[in-house]
């Protein structure tokens, strides 16, 4: 299967997603928006799934 990006970049992007998710929950709490663990995990799964879908989607499809 050909990826739109290299596995290494994908790994780094997934790691960044996790990190943003953890820190975003804290940042949102400071402005009065509290995300439950369940909601945080759901957002994380959705974000990483979207990232993986983008990566495996053939380049040029949908254009």
């Amino acid at each position: 299967m050909r990826l739109r990006t290299s596995p290494a970049k994908l790994l780094v992007l997934v790691a960044l997603c996790l990190v943003v998710l953890v820190e975003l929950r804290t940042a949102l709490a400071f402005v009065g928006v509290s995300l439950s663990i369940g909601a945080t995990v759901a957002v994380g799964v959705a974000a990483i799934a979207a990232l993986l879908l983008w990566a495996v989607r053939p380049a040029g499809s949908g254009e």
């Binding site: 790994l11 780094v12 790691a15 996790l18 990190v19 953890v22 820190e23």
Partner: peptide
């Protein structure tokens, strides 16, 4: 990458 994720957690 594991270290990066672990330290942030």
């Amino acid at each position: 990458v594991l270290w990066f994720v672990g330290i942030v957690f």
